[in-house]
Lab assay of single mutants.
Amino acid sequence: KKPMSASALFVQDHRPQFLIENPKTSLEDATLQIEELWKTLSEEEKLKYEEKATKDLERYNSQMKR
Rank of each mutant, 00 (worst) to 15 (best):
K1S: 02
K1G: 06
K1W: 01
K1V: 07
K1T: 04
K1C: 15
K2C: 11
K2M: 05
K2P: 07
K2R: 04
K2L: 11
K2H: 15
P3R: 06
P3L: 03
P3M: 04
P3Q: 00
P3D: 13
M4K: 14
M4G: 07
M4W: 02
M4D: 10
M4N: 08
M4V: 11
M4E: 13
M4Q: 14
S5Y: 01
S5C: 04
S5H: 04
S5K: 08
S5V: 04
A6W: 00
A6K: 04
A6R: 01
A6L: 02
A6I: 00
A6N: 00
A6G: 05
A6V: 02
S7K: 15
S7V: 15
S7P: 15
S7N: 12
S7I: 15
S7D: 14
A8P: 03
A8F: 01
A8G: 07
L9P: 00
L9C: 07
L9N: 03
L9F: 09
L9Y: 08
L9K: 13
F10Q: 03
F10L: 01
F10W: 06
F10H: 08
F10A: 01
F10Y: 15
F10E: 02
V11I: 03
Q12V: 03
Q12A: 15
D13N: 02
H14R: 02
R15E: 03
R15V: 14
R15M: 15
R15A: 13
R15N: 01
P16H: 00
P16W: 03
P16C: 04
P16Y: 07
P16T: 08
P16S: 07
P16A: 12
P16F: 00
P16M: 03
L19F: 03
L19S: 14
I20V: 15
E21D: 03
N22D: 03
T25C: 08
T25E: 08
T25P: 01
T25V: 15
T25N: 07
T25S: 03
S26K: 08
S26W: 00
S26P: 07
S26D: 10
S26R: 05
S26V: 01
S26C: 10
L27C: 04
L27P: 14
L27D: 00
L27W: 07
L27E: 02
L27G: 05
L27F: 15
L27V: 09
L27T: 10
A30E: 03
A30T: 01
A30V: 05
T31I: 03
T31A: 08
T31S: 04
T31D: 10
T31P: 02
T31R: 11
L32Y: 06
L32R: 14
L32I: 08
L32W: 08
Q33L: 00
Q33A: 12
Q33N: 00
Q33T: 03
Q33M: 05
E35R: 09
E35M: 13
E35C: 06
E35F: 06
E35Y: 11
E35S: 07
L37A: 12
L37M: 05
L37G: 08
L37E: 04
L37Y: 03
L37W: 04
L37P: 00
W38H: 14
W38F: 05
W38R: 05
W38E: 09
K39V: 03
K39C: 08
K39G: 00
K39S: 11
K39N: 01
K39L: 07
T40P: 02
T40M: 08
L41C: 07
L41W: 01
L41G: 05
L41I: 07
L41T: 13
L41K: 05
L41Q: 12
S42P: 12
S42V: 02
S42L: 00
S42Y: 00
S42M: 00
S42R: 06
E43V: 13
E43M: 13
E43P: 11
E43F: 06
E43W: 12
E43Q: 14
E44M: 03
E44C: 08
E44N: 04
E44P: 11
E45I: 11
E45A: 06
E45Y: 01
E45H: 09
E45C: 05
E45T: 07
E45W: 01
K46D: 00
K46C: 02
K46R: 12
K46I: 00
K46G: 00
K46S: 01
L47W: 09
L47G: 10
L47P: 00
L47Q: 01
L47A: 15
L47V: 14
K48C: 14
K48G: 05
K48D: 00
K48T: 07
K48N: 04
K48E: 07
K48P: 11
Y49G: 01
Y49E: 00
Y49Q: 02
Y49R: 02
Y49D: 01
E51V: 11
E51C: 07
E51T: 12
E51D: 12
E51K: 08
E51M: 09
E51R: 12
E51W: 05
E51A: 11
E51Q: 13
K52T: 05
K52N: 05
K52E: 12
K52W: 04
K52Q: 13
K52V: 06
K52C: 11
K52R: 13
K52Y: 05
A53C: 07
A53V: 06
A53K: 03
A53Y: 07
A53M: 03
A53R: 05
A53W: 00
T54G: 15
T54R: 12
T54W: 04
T54V: 10
T54D: 13
T54S: 14
T54F: 06
T54K: 14
K55I: 13
K55Q: 05
K55F: 01
K55P: 04
D56C: 08
D56E: 15
D56P: 03
D56S: 13
D56N: 05
D56Y: 05
D56I: 05
D56A: 12
L57F: 08
L57C: 11
L57A: 13
L57T: 07
L57K: 09
L57M: 14
E58H: 11
E58Y: 06
E58M: 08
E58L: 12
R59P: 10
R59E: 14
R59V: 13
R59M: 12
R59S: 13
Y60E: 10
Y60S: 14
Y60G: 12
Y60D: 14
Y60C: 13
Y60W: 10
N61T: 13
N61H: 09
N61Q: 10
N61G: 07
N61M: 09
N61L: 04
S62N: 14
S62K: 14
S62M: 10
S62R: 11
S62D: 10
S62H: 14
Q63H: 07
Q63P: 06
Q63E: 13
Q63L: 10
Q63G: 11
M64C: 07
M64A: 12
M64Y: 14
M64G: 10
K65Y: 07
K65N: 08
K65R: 11
K65E: 15
K65C: 07
K65I: 06
K65W: 02
R66T: 14
R66M: 14
R66L: 14
